[in-house]
């Protein structure tokens, strides 16, 4: 299936999490921090650390490591 990260097409397998599908497509930087603008990506990978939070279909602060991909999903990391 296909979803979008920052308007780029990303291919994924049903059941994969957004974060894992992005990593598989070599997208490692998921967002920038609000004070320093430092790049962040997946860290704990199991929903504990909230480092991988992205905006999914307009809903902010979703953990990319937990949410499973859906066809046509729109994911944004940097626009905040």
């Amino acid at each position: 299936m296909i979803f979008f990260f920052e308007n780029n097409e990303i291919h994924a397998i049903a059941g994969q999490t957004v974060g894992s599908a992005l990593l598989e497509n070599n997208v490692r930087v998921l967002r920038r921090t609000r004070f320093e603008g430092a790049p962040r990506g997946m860290f704990c990978g199991i929903g504990v650390c909230f480092d991988c939070v992205v905006t999914i279909n307009g809903v902010a602060n979703q953990r990319a490591c937990l949410v499973e991909v859906e066809e046509g999903m729109r994911v944004e990391g940097f626009q905040r």
């Binding site: 894992s20 490692r28 962040r40 860290f43 704990c44 990978g45 199991i46």
Partner: peptide, 30 residues
């Protein structure tokens, strides 16, 4: 969940926990 310790650079994308890497492999085939 994995216990982590802070160290210089631990917030760089690519530094992860073993549990996270394992979850990607076991749960996502990534």
């Amino acid at each position: 969940y994995d216990r982590t310790l802070p160290f210089p650079g631990w917030d760089i994308p690519g530094v992860m926990t073993p549990g996270g890497v394992q979850a990607l492999l076991k749960g996502n085939n990534v």
